[in-house]
């Protein structure tokens, strides 16, 4: 399956807010480019979209979920790859979804991709996004005595700026 076909199958089934293929050329021989698919989908359809990926490929490889906050919006990107194991045939796809900052929540996809648990725990503690139905909601990367309601990936008042220490300056008392 080609990248264009993957994108077309998504376009057919979902209402995509953004859909593009970046052709990246980072090869010595410059014969062919590597396609990267980026799509944006509404929060309600997000889980269905991951389900759609699982229909395209029996077990899509989940790389990681990244995210950031811009203004009142939190944007999550789930990075998957299909067709791994086929020489020069792997397709990377980033599924984006936008959430409102005040009430950010996203359904868990661990039912479809069990390996997503670590990423879901991470976005929960790093961005303050509630993952609905997550099998294990404890903290993962942040230290145990890390203050609550501080989310390191955010850039607003809940971001980590107030607890930052500069080692070159004296001890904060």
């Amino acid at each position: 399956m080609k990248a264009e076909q993957v994108l077309a199958s998504f376009k057919k089934r979902f209402k995509l807010k953004e859909a593009r293929i970046d052709n990246v050329m980072h090869r010595a021989n410059r014969k062919s480019a590597v396609p990267r698919i980026w799509i944006e989908i509404g929060r309600e359809e997000f889980k269905e979209a991951v389900g759609h990926l699982c229909e395209l490929h029996p077990m899509p490889h989940f790389a990681v979920a990244s995210g950031y906050q811009i203004g009142e919006i939190i944007e999550l990107i789930y990075h998957f790859s299909l067709n791994y194991g086929k020489p020069q045939g792997e397709i990377c796809i980033g599924i984006k979804t936008k959430l409102e900052k005040g009430n950010a929540s996203i359904p868990t996809i661990t039912g479809l991709v069990p390996g997503a648990l670590i990423s879901e725990r991470e976005i929960q503690e790093m961005l303050g996004v509630k993952v609905e139905g997550i099998p294990d909601s404890r903290r993962l990367f942040l230290p145990k005595n890390f203050p609550k309601k501080v989310y390191p990936w955010r850039r607003d008042e809940t971001g980590p700026n107030k607890i930052v220490r500069n080692m070159h300056k004296g001890e904060k008392k």
Partner: peptide, 22 residues
């Protein structure tokens, strides 16, 4: 037994010329 290797699957840098197999 999962034949997954970015050098083979995506072939970036000089790897497409080198014919890497997982």
């Amino acid at each position: 037994g999962v034949k997954k290797d970015v050098r083979q699957d995506e072939a970036y840098a000089a790897y497409p010329d080198l014919d890497v197999k997982a």
